[in-house]
Design a protein around this nucleic acid. Structure first.
Lengths: 194, 194, 194, 194
DNA sequence: CATGAATGAGAGTTCATTCAT
DNA sequence: GATGAATGAACTCTCATTCAT
């Protein structure tokens, strides 16, 4: 029974994910999800009692998958600059798939939820990413690949630019060239030019 | 008649602006605006037929006022680095007044409206700002205040960082220190260190 | 407009009264009242936001009418025993019109509402009635019509018997004879037999 | 099999009794009983198909227990006035335990069920009680404890007062003093004053 | 022009009841 | 017998939108 429940919950969350990608967060109704899942109105309430609850599970799933992806990268034996480039490439991919990402929904959600700063997952993700990039830059400096006086500052700068690009992609649209241009600008500031 | 109409339209738009600041874009109902304006339901429909229409007028008004403010700054006789610093200070102010800005509403609006890229006012504003900053940097270089190899790139970088900070302020909250830190990082990359 | 509103409110309350008489309190839904009134779902909400609110207005109306009836009786020039008999006759009428009284709805309402004792209208009505009957009995004693050692006790006894009869009429049904028998018993305890 | 069934039915009825005491009759849902019993939704339907059916069994159980209690009293060797006093004391106890009695549920149930008068258990209980009290009074008269010209009338009066007090306790709340006062009034009308 | 009462579609939510396992 | 997931009807409540005055 727990089995069945868990499976259906997962099915609902996965299906709902598609709905959130399509419609963002605020426009999604319980009916939208019911229809997408092909289940009954009351049926959905057996598993979730609000779109928020469902969305939080979608985010949880998302975070787990992101961890998996990350784990995969770490295993590889690559130079810091390669890893950073890979990371930026991933980000680029997400930005350009405007129609297939949860970005819009995530922002809409956090616009209205007043999450205490300390517990805000969005902040935690950001801070974690900054730390990782900082480490990569420091490793790159040691490896003689990068030059940078303020690794932490650079890492933060990169993350804010990425966030700026992300919101730009959702509100005005961006092209691959635009992303590349910014990534290039960032990398030029780091890579040692001889 | 046209006179009167125009005046009332303006009154509605100004009042609605406050509502959008408070509630963002999607949560605002015609009733909210009717209540805020103290006019009748039917009355509002004589001027606007949806919240979207009203919001578009709010944005128009906003753009005009922004131009005015900008004009004010240009008249002043200040060095490029002063002007840039002033501009960044303005941006900082807006970010920290989370509750008093249209930022959230604007993003919510552009999340759902598919505006053709070329006509997207958000894009136009961004591009304009980039150009101005670029010019400022170039002027700064000439004045011996700044050093920078890629003025356009730097200008874009600044704008994306600002946009990243703006969305961060709306979704996870930021402190004055956080903004100052980023601004400092940006300026350090420009100002000539002796 | 206030005019129109007030009229419609009154219409709704009067119509709803019929619904409450028919179905009691708990079974009545907003839809029941909407249907009975022949208005739209949303229309009802312009005037009342819950069945409780409507019911309270029904009770208010009832109280006012009761006062009017009472006022009418007081004006008449009748002996205490006549007035008491008249009062009992009124009560009897109400009991026997099982289908036409709010009794059931009133009890259902007070079953579930925890009204602070001091403010409980049901208690106030009861106490008021006891006082009036007590005065009537005392007047009857002075007039030589009644004999009674404890007017207050007798008054309370009468009211509790009436309440017992009332609940009996709603839950098991009573006949005119049954009421008459109790009334007779009460009066025999008061009237001086020579 | 029949054994097991009967046992489970009894368990359900006893558990449901507690639910009815807590919530009255109308507010109780099948889910409430399922939860209280710790059995499955479908399981309950194997034994009962509605809350009404369950409540009727609760009433049956109640009636049997009442008989038992009554039997206990009858065995005792006490004077009529003692027995009557004991009976009134029992009634008082029930009234004051507003939260622990089925009174509310019983009234709610009979408000909506149209039981043919002849078969109405409520009526049968009432009539039985009247008869017993009548006999007690007559016995009391013979024993020289009571004086009363109309034993049947007095018995009925007592029962209606008790019923009035009961409904008062459920709808407006009563205190011990209030009950005592009424009981005293009743007894004073019966006991021979020297 | 302006009003605000009225409408009805649609979202949220709960529960009695069924049925495959 | 027993389970509990699933269904769908019914209720509450809110708003965009219309229209007679």
């Amino acid at each position: 029974m727990g089995e069945k429940s868990a499976q259906k919950r997962k099915y609902i969350v996965e299906t709902a994910r598609g709905v959130f990608i399509q419609k963002g967060y605020k426009d999604v109704t319980m009916k939208d999800i019911v229809d997408a899942c092909g289940i009954s109105r009351g049926g959905l309430y057996l598993y979730f009692s609000s779109t928020e609850e469902i969305f939080m599970d979608v985010l949880k799933m998302e975070a787990e998958e992101a961890d998996d992806v990350f784990a995969g990268k770490v295993k590889e034996d690559a130079s810091p600059s390669d890893i950073l480039a890979l990371f930026l490439k991933e980000q680029k991919k997400e930005m350009l798939l405007k129609r297939n990402s949860l970005t819009k929904a995530v922002y809409e959600y956090y616009f209205e939820k007043k999450v205490p700063k300390k517990e805000n997952p969005l902040k935690q993700q950001f801070d974690t990413a900054v730390k990782i990039i900082e480490k990569l830059i420091e490793a790159g400096i040691e490896a003689g690949e990068f030059y940078c006086e303020d690794a932490k500052g650079a890492a933060r700068n990169i993350m804010y630019v990425l966030e700026g690009l992300k919101i730009a992609s959702q509100t005005r649209g961006i092209t691959e060239e635009m992303v590349d241009r910014e990534v290039l600008y960032i990398m030029q500031g780091l890579v040692i030019e001889e």
